[in-house]
Design a protein around this nucleic acid. Structure first.
Lengths: 145, 145
DNA sequence: TATTGTTATACTCTATAACTATA
DNA sequence: TATAGTTATAGAGTATAACAATA
């Protein structure tokens, strides 16, 4: 049985994955915008809140971001007074939350939790437990560069 | 129990959704690149192959793309000789595959099918059936503009 | 008045190449 | 020689505003 045009797309997991992801990202962006930060920045604050310190390039690997793109990001967070960047060796930078960053990280945590809760509750109970493991199986840690 | 930094992120469905989506998109892009087309363009060919005709703005609604962004897309497809654009009323344009577009759509179909198959096979069998319904629940048809 | 298509524009995200300086 | 960080740049993707033509 071939279908209406909606069904064509709604039966392609890859396509629906893209649409679902973009819908959720835009919802999260809306929740974060009062804090004046974007999603990547929120994620960085979250990581630093849990981990205290991480080198800039380790953070790149953790988040799947290219070093070249991390630089302006980290500079912006530093300019906002949210993180410090300290040299460990002569080539590595170590990122750490400031007082102000730590406070903001707390607010981020609340927003993310509520966002994740709302997300998971949209999925019917029978499917919920299967969702995260399925997604993790698609997560691809590819060595870039 | 709190965790290593990987687990922090891997336990956030929204974040994992983003990473999974971006991983799958880059895999698909790699498969499509020999055809010289991007994912949106592939999707448009697919829709037109199933539906023969669709107006440009209906296509926008179907794919969640803004009219302003569809224009250059459609023009490019037309310049490549893959679609025709014909006026229906004085303001609407109707998109339709050319012979050449139809041939390419066939190749796209093969690539997408194989991509979707590979995607779904990465998910362990117990979770597979739950994946698509969960994603569809997150798909958000928001009226833009 | 609402809709269709277009143009111009801007911001984010991502990617590559080239460079420096350190290990 | 490999790694860390930076700069410059280019390509997608997406968003808004303003406009003309048409329904």
């Amino acid at each position: 049985m071939q279908q209406n045009p909606d069904d064509l797309l709604r039966n392609l997991p890859g396509y629906v994955l893209r649409r679902a992801s973009s819908a959720m990202m835009s919802k999260l962006a809306a929740r974060l915008s009062p804090l004046g930060i974007r999603q990547v920045e929120a994620t960085i604050l979250l990581v630093l809140a849990q981990q205290r310190k991480i080198s800039q390039s380790d953070l790149c690997r953790l988040l799947g971001i290219k070093r070249a793109n991390m630089t302006p990001l980290a500079i912006r967070l530093e300019e906002q007074g949210l993180i410090k960047r300290q040299a460990t060796d002569g080539r590595s930078l170590c990122l750490e939350l400031t007082e102000r960053g730590s406070l903001l990280a707390g607010q981020v945590q609340i927003i993310i939790e509520s966002h994740e809760k709302a997300l998971i509750e949209r999925i019917s109970p029978e499917h919920r437990a299967h969702f995260l493991p399925a997604l993790v199986a698609l997560w691809d840690d590819q060595e870039s560069e």
